[in-house]
């Protein structure tokens, strides 16, 4: 199952990249740089999806106190942090090409950077706490409270005057661009599912070893 999902993720991301880079025409206004949209938006989507998953798993942990929910949340945070960091880097490259600057203290950019800091904080707290129950409890609280930042990032372009364009979706663009974006959404979502599966299995094995004591460490 894991290998099938990994192969499917690899194949769909490769196809999505070929379509985005070589088949779809360049945007009439932005030109070639618009092709970055087909990775920038899907990585942002994966980040938001991961943090929504963290919110659900953290809530479940606080209700049921099962460490499985904590392991799933922690796995999703790690993937979400990578995805959001990539979103910021790709957005910065796009910004340099279109706005002429790498970074602007724009509401969308600033709230996204804060979002990244919140979840990096989650990982820092996790690495500093040795007791599994205490670690899970603290991280679950951050996972629930930190999610407040996600709708703020999404709505920031509507709430404040923003240089960043409104959210890009298949509905907000021509069919050919919309299809490519939708395809890449699906491809990166499969990639997220694959990474989640691997990361969660690893987390379970690490926890089992941790609970078994130092004698079981390699």
């Amino acid at each position: 199952m894991q290998r099938t999902l990994g192969a499917l993720a690899l194949a769909t991301i490769a196809i999505g990249t070929i379509i985005g880079l070589f088949i779809v025409p360049a945007d009439g206004l932005q030109g070639e740089i618009q092709r970055l949209l087909y990775v920038h938006v899907p990585t942002a989507w994966v980040g938001m999806l991961a943090f929504f998953f963290v919110f659900i798993m953290s809530t479940l942990y606080l209700v049921q106190r099962r460490l499985d929910w904590d392991l799933m949340a922690a796995s999703a945070v790690e993937i979400g942090v990578v995805a959001i960091a990539l979103t910021i880097i790709l957005g910065s490259i796009w910004g340099q090409g279109t706005w002429g600057v790498w970074w602007e203290w724009d509401p969308r950019l600033t709230t996204t950077a804060l979002l990244l800091i919140v979840y990096v904080g989650y990982l820092v707290v996790r690495s500093m706490t040795e007791d599994p129950d205490q670690r899970a409890r603290w991280c679950a609280v951050i996972g629930v409270i930190g999610f407040v930042q996600v709708p703020i990032v999404y709505l920031s372009v509507f709430w404040w005057r923003s240089l960043h364009q409104p959210p890009s979706s298949p509905r907000s663009m021509a069919t050919v661009f919309g299809f490519t974006l939708l395809f890449n959404f699906a491809a990166y979502t499969i990639g997220f599912a694959y990474l989640m599966m691997r990361r969660y299995r690893l987390a379970k094995r690490e926890l089992s070893l941790e609970l078994a004591g130092p004698d079981a460490e390699p």
Binding site: L21, L90, R198, L202
Partner: peptide
């Protein structure tokens, strides 16, 4: 810039999978 953007994305993905 586009190539750099795509290359960074894939390098990060591959590095993460290798780290796992």
């Amino acid at each position: 810039s586009i190539i750099v953007g795509y290359a960074i994305t894939f390098a990060a993905g591959v590095a993460y999978v290798l780290r796992l």
